[in-house]
Amino acid sequence: MTTLPMPATMTQLPKEIDGYPILSLIGEGAFSKIYAAKDPKTRQLLALKHVIINDPKKDDRWVEQMESETRIANALDHPVLRKVFHFKRQRRWLKSLGAVMLMEFVDGRTLDVIKPDVQETIRIFIHLAQGLQHIEQLGFVHCDMKPINVLVTSNGDVKIIDLGQACESGTVKKRIQGTPGYMAPEQAHRREITPATDVYNLGATMYWVLCGRVIPTALPPRGQNNGLTTGAVEERFLKPPIPANEVNPDVPNIVAKTIQEAVDPDPARRITMSKFLERLEMAQGLLKSGNGQEFEI
């Protein structure tokens, strides 16, 4: 989802969707839009995700994805994860017209916009690791951690959003899903998805926040594969990223090493999410004590 810098004007907005008054457009993806809406009974502010089906043969999978997102979100309960309240397919007679999903409204900015310093980055990623650890403990994988899927509010609350690609651990997906520049090799090659996938995605995301660049991944962003391949890059050809503390000297050694271990192309060699969290909490304590760069692991 791409967060829009300004809400759409009222002339561009539907007056209501499925009985919910629409206030503004707050996000837009390839096949869906997210609006700020109001519950007509409680007056509660909500985020409303809307998918319209134009071609049932092609578009119904986006509705199925929303239905899966609702099911997984309802199985989870953690303050870092945005809540999903309701899902409804829109039909007319036997024809499927689309779907509506009602979610917790989060008044925040995405991680790519706020550009936090190193200490704040570590604080934010401690929360993210805690949320992803909860997902792992319930048997799921988020599968799409990236800067625009993290919201930070003005009072510092952190929210992981968009469970649209989440799945059960052990899933082998029928198509490539993920985001180039953050995607783990097993996603690019349609292999088994495990909690190690989220570790990779989280490490790649933290590297981008701290260094302002993506790591070399099996599916690079468009235009960044130097014309060597038109498909996914095999793991043996992947070079490790330049350590984060060599790109940004303010990054503590322990954090740089943790990221390197998180983005190992081999899932079996990656650091675990619990160890990722433990290292970040250690780094946070060291920075507060003024010894951030003196600790080696």
Rank of each mutant, 00 (worst) to 15 (best):
H86N: 05
L23S: 05
L138G: 10
R191T: 11
G292H: 04
L219H: 15
R190C: 08
L48E: 00
D162T: 00
E186Q: 13
G223T: 12
G29Y: 00
E67K: 15
N225A: 13
Q133L: 13
L81Q: 01
G139Q: 00
M10Y: 12
A188R: 06
I114E: 11
I34W: 04
R43A: 12
P240R: 08
I26T: 03
Q224F: 10
D162L: 02
T121Y: 09
K173Y: 04
K239H: 14
K49F: 00
P180F: 09
K95A: 06
F125S: 08
Q44C: 04
A47Q: 02
L76A: 07
Q137K: 12
G212W: 04
R191L: 12
H142K: 09
R190K: 14
S289C: 07
E64I: 11
E64Q: 13
E281K: 15
L45S: 14
E261C: 12
P180G: 07
T217Q: 03
K275G: 09
G203Q: 07
V152E: 02
Q260P: 03
D18L: 02
Y207E: 03
K115C: 04
L163I: 03
K275S: 14
K174R: 14
A129M: 05
A8G: 04
L76R: 01
T217R: 01
T2R: 14
Q165Y: 13
L277F: 12
R279Q: 11
D18C: 08
T110F: 01
L13M: 10
G108P: 10
V255E: 11
P185Y: 03
K38R: 14
V63D: 07
A166W: 04
H142C: 07
T258V: 08
N226G: 13
P241F: 02
I126W: 08
G181W: 06
V209S: 03
Q224H: 10
P185I: 00
S24D: 08
K174G: 13
K33D: 08
Q187M: 10
F237I: 10
L128K: 11
Y35F: 11
K49A: 01
P21V: 10
A36G: 05
L94M: 12
T42I: 02
G178Y: 10
A256Y: 04
V214E: 06
Q165H: 13
R123E: 15
R270Q: 04
L13P: 09
V113M: 11
K58S: 11
